[in-house]
């Protein structure tokens, strides 16, 4: 089947022109408890929540250039919650004055028939994984401490295997483009988490092998 031509241009304009500011790091399993303890102290006074999510990454190969990537995520712990479809743009790492990685981001809540819909559109699933861990909030900042697991049998989220002996720590903020004060707040928050975890801006393009 011929793939339909797709523009790879990021979606701009309107209220959906949001940027995600991101800092990443990781901790070993042994250090998890102390990190959680610290986060509980630093973050907003909310009940600490755990989550288990299943993420599917879909690719649409156009005629030219890079494939178009969409991420579909659903909550395994809250099966009735809507699916979450996410487009992440090319990350801008170059600016030294900015303390966080910035990328274009489009978030859409979707119904449960999302995978079929994407398949019909011509998207193909590239890979899937299960992520479980803890989620914290401080103001607009979201802190996700998660463990990634590989799915051994495609589609079976029960049968998984941990990818590593460490937890991924992500600090992210969604903000309209051009709000660089956000990254300042993120940096000061990341400072407070040192030396438990060092949150840095990690360029995903340089990590590809």
């Amino acid at each position: 089947m011929e793939a339909p031509p797709v523009t790879v241009m990021p979606v701009t304009g309107g209220t959906i022109n949001m940027m995600e500011y991101l800092l990443q790091g990781s901790v070993l399993d042994q250090a998890l408890e102390s990190l959680l303890h610290r986060l509980r102290g630093l973050c907003d006074n909310m009940e600490p929540e755990t989550f288990t999510d299943h993420e599917l990454v879909y690719l649409l190969k156009g005629q030219q250039g890079n494939p178009f990537i969409l991420r579909a995520r659903r909550s395994l712990s809250h099966p009735t919650a809507p699916w979450h479809l996410r487009y992440l743009g090319q990350s801008e790492v170059g600016d030294k004055s900015r303390h966080a990685l910035v990328r274009n981001c489009v978030d859409v809540a979707a119904s449960h028939s999302l995978p079929e819909f994407l398949n019909e559109m011509g998207f193909r699933m590239d890979h899937e994984f299960v992520s479980n861990g803890h989620i914290f909030r401080k103001g607009a900042m979201k802190i996700v401490v998660s463990k990634l697991s590989r799915i051994l049998v495609p589609g079976n989220t029960e049968n998984t295997e941990h990818l590593s002996l460490s937890y991924l720590v992500e600090l992210s903020v969604l903000a309209p483009a051009g709000q660089d004060t956000v990254s300042e707040d993120m940096r000061s928050f990341a400072e407070q988490l040192k030396p438990l975890v060092h949150l840095e801006k990690i360029d995903p393009s340089k990590q590809r092998h």
């Binding site: 989550f51 999510d53 659903r74 979450h84 996410r86 119904s111 861990g133 989620i135 979201k142």
Partner: peptide, 20 residues
């Protein structure tokens, strides 16, 4: 807290508005 965790903060009902 949003579920799945990647979803943005906000009212749960508003997130349901589209799918429902």
């Amino acid at each position: 807290m949003p579920h799945p965790s990647s979803a943005p903060f906000g009212h749960k009902r508003l997130r349901l508005a589209g799918p429902l």
